[in-house]
Amino acid sequence: MIFSLLVYGAPHSHQAAESAYRFAVSALNQGHGIHRIFFYGDGVHNGSALASPPQDECDLPARWQALAEQHELDLVVCIAAAVRRGVLDANEALRYEKPAHNLRAGFELSGLGQLAEAAIQSDRLITFGA
């Protein structure tokens, strides 16, 4: 079965992102495929390279990155939601003339069309809402 996940919550603010991560791990362990994980709304903060939780707490952005590297996952952060909230890649930082960019390696910024495409191409779309 091919899944795509829609993650709507920021790490730490809401449990949704952590639930999505556990689901992804469990699905992969069962041999299912994950077509895409799409981060929307406050979920864009999952793609921050600058999140610095205390060492005894879960560093979800880092775990997403590691999972993506291990399984070649497509982690897409909604570009419109991200730039509004200050999650930028190098291109967007240049475009908006910002002094820095903070999109974590393993994530990419792209449009909402990637969510629609994921829903069309996958057997199931699972939303982790906040």
Binding site: G41, A80, A81, G113, A116, A119, I120
Partner: peptide, 19 residues
């Protein structure tokens, strides 16, 4: 909140994909 706008944007984008 941004939920209502996000719902609308998702609907419009999905329609662009001719679904």
């Amino acid at each position: 909140s941004s939920h209502a706008r996000d719902a609308l944007d998702t609907a419009l984008t999905t329609a662009v994909f001719e679904q």
